[in-house]
Write a protein that binds this DNA or RNA. Structure first.
Lengths: 242, 242
DNA sequence: GCCGATTTGTCCGTATGTATC
DNA sequence: CGATACATACGGACAAATCGG
């Protein structure tokens, strides 16, 4: 449940938009009216609208009002721009999810790994390979590197379930920022093996590389997710800086 | 030139971070100090920090301070999360850019097009196909649909140069929000023809579909960009909502 | 463990500027 | 021109997290 006022307003407006009470290409009530509706200050309303704008739900136009630009099409997507665990996305898309751990090891960051990941040389790490099944089809190959300092006590069993759940619920570490880079790469032998690839079909994979930062300001995770193109979709909203 | 105070502060902090004056994993000066430095109110400083956080430059931590999480690695990318024209990205990456217009027509949106693009049925549109060359290699196939109402007067010649320049400079229309969806698709015969594909190499393309909204709150552009994987890279930053 | 200083987070009120109609 | 709408900027108050003594 939202504990802050602007979050409550944000959630309510978002719900109203999704349910069609504020249809696409119409205007939201003016800030003045929203102040009356939610009985709060103008800043608080503006904060909520701002967050909605960043997610592509609305767009403010000077002197006119706040337009709804949400279209229901974009709901049925698998991988969204936000930060979400595999389990969370699977649940949201009503797919059966299963994870098989293919490798689990403790390593130390060397020069080569440091260059690729951004972890400092000498940093103790967990190296984990996992195959993700959606409705029993191997769909994603995940290669994770977690800092053993930031995320201590990881086990094979936790990796089989949800590492994010462990981080947030057991360790109390909050996940804040995630930087992601999307590329398309030729499938390797390892991909072929784990994802049961038929190269005549697709010989490429969608590769998402991400660095995740926790609430202590340090990077605690570097992950490469290799997606079967068929089930891959990545959505984001950009706003132009003037 | 930035006309607003928070933009000035944002630009200055960004520059300092990029130049290494505020190195990665150190703290920015506290809000209190920044208020003194820039001689402004707390809200203004916070606004600038907020914008930097959304671009993955910094991350605020309650009770501690604002960490710099920028790493210089991410500069040399081609397609970024932001809104940028082909010409702009090419210049930023110091590549020679050329555009060949393969098709230019005026059409009217029918049911099928409407379902795919989100334009209303009956909307008058421009249909444009362009091949983008980077350093004389055909790298991107762009299929654009522009609203003839929002973007009147488009010509073959403008399409050969920069449509965005025309929209912003000649029409005075501001580009605000862009929603994008990234997928990986099998290459078609058309791709093969225009991009000189060798299917033994890559048989897939990175496909970015985007809907762009202008300052009048209406969608004026629907574009599908089909990228050669070799030169494709897409970067974005996500922050977790609690 | 407690306390006080520091730092960020939330929220309020107000004034002024500027675009739209 | 005036009314309405959003944009920028300032100020202050209190809460919550962190850290050092």
């Amino acid at each position: 449940m939202p504990r802050t006022l602007y979050k409550t307003i944000y959630d309510d407006l978002k719900m109203q938009i999704e349910e069609g009470n504020y249809p696409p290409s119409t205007l939201l009530p003016s800030e003045k009216k929203l102040i009356e509706i939610y009985n709060c200050s103008r800043n608080t309303v503006r904060r909520a609208i701002n967050d909605l704008a960043q997610e592509g739900y609305v767009q403010s136009v000077h002197g006119k009002g706040v337009f709804v630009i949400y279209h229901p099409t974009h709901q049925a997507m698998f991988a969204m721009g936000g930060i979400e665990s595999f389990k969370e996305s699977a649940i949201r898309n009503r797919l059966h999810a299963r994870t098989r751990v293919a490798a689990f090891a403790e390593i130390t960051c060397d020069k080569r790994v440091s260059k690729r990941t951004g972890f400092p040389v000498g940093e103790p790490l967990y190296y984990i390979q996992r195959v993700r099944y959606l409705d029993n089809i191997p769909s994603i190959l995940d290669i994770n590197l977690f800092s053993r300092k930031s995320v201590p006590g990881l086990t094979f069993e936790i990796a089989e379930n949800s590492i994010y759940e462990y981080i947030e619920k057991k360790l109390g570490l909050t996940i804040v920022t995630s930087k992601r880079i999307m590329t398309v790469e030729k499938a390797t032998e390892i991909d072929e093996k784990y994802l049961n690839l038929n190269l005549d079909d697709y010989n490429c994979l969608a590769v998402v590389t991400s660095q995740t930062y926790g609430s202590d300001g340090t990077m605690f995770e570097y992950t490469q997710s290799r997606h079967l193109p068929k089930y891959f979709c990545f959505m984001t909203t950009a706003t132009r800086k003037i």
